[in-house]
Design a protein around this nucleic acid. Structure first.
Lengths: 154, 154
DNA sequence: TGTTAATATTTAACATGTTATATTTATCGT
DNA sequence: ACGATAAATATAACATGTTAAATATTAACA
């Protein structure tokens, strides 16, 4: 007739929460990269948009949002800032006037080229600390997790 | 004498970026939990604070921020909201008046108890889709990554 | 003891996250 | 062609993320 024991948690420990584990891991990694972006004068999100467009060619706003894990209201403002800085260009899609086509400018590519060697150096640092095999396996597991969850998204 | 070939990326592919992989994985996972929190009327961050205090006992604001991956200016506002809703209690630390001690209230615990079974059900769903062994291994790898990076944080 | 440096939290300002809604343009069925 | 529905983006409002600076308290030390 007794209720749940207060010392008996109804929920898994905070540290065993997968969202927390992923968040903490991302924070640990980003702590290594943030100084570079700060030095380059771009935010994390602005950097993601530039990276998606660089090599990804011109893309619809919606596609950029999907690839960058951004919601479209955020993207609207981020692109406004990037366009004001001359790092990204906007134009209407002639075939569908609803769509906004985004592309990186030469100035945007130059910024990426400036940051790239520093970024790769940090990546090499992380690889050395964590191990190349561990890193590959982690990438594979993360991709598998996303595939498993997204395929069955209601 | 030629510069870098534009088709030859100076940076690893966007999809091979560890920060992006961690972000996408977290999004895929959170998509399963967000409806529950929304239904319970709390944000992700408010939920993290409640979870940290539940079972973690009373904690300094700074310690809560560390455990929840929140910056202290964010925590100030989040706790203000939680306190206004009666889910968290604030008091000064008598031994160090600079410190703010936070604790969860009975109402806060009741909210967690209400959400817990739904949350665990989602977790079971994820475990079934991804595999218990994969999940354990992923947790271990994430913890190892954090340990490797945090130990050597400049 | 009194002055300075360090620590914990808060405030302020601006960028982004998040939800709801509005606006514009396409598509579909008739 | 017309009207209803759907789709893509933008706007609005509030919560949070992020940096810098302010405030209050404590610790360190000459």
């Amino acid at each position: 007739m007794s209720g749940p024991d207060p010392a008996d948690p109804v929920l898994r420990g905070f540290s065993r929460s997968l969202p927390m584990a992923l968040l903490q891991a991302r924070e640990a990694v980003m702590n290594r990269f943030r100084p570079l972006l700060r030095e380059a004068g771009v935010t994390e999100q602005q950097w993601r948009v530039l990276r998606a467009l660089d090599g990804g060619g011109p893309l619809d706003a919606g596609e950029v949002a999907r690839r960058c894990c951004l919601l479209t209201p955020s993207l609207t403002r981020i692109v406004k800032t990037l366009a004001a800085g001359g790092l990204v260009a906007r134009r209407q899609d002639p075939g569908d006037l609803r769509r906004l086509v985004l592309d990186i400018t030469p100035a945007g590519r130059a910024l990426i080229a400036r940051v790239a060697p520093l970024s790769e150096a940090r990546y090499a640092e992380i690889t050395a600390l964590f191990g190349a095999a561990n890193l590959d396996d982690l990438h594979a597991k993360l991709a598998a997790l996303v595939a498993a969850l997204d395929e069955t998204a209601d």
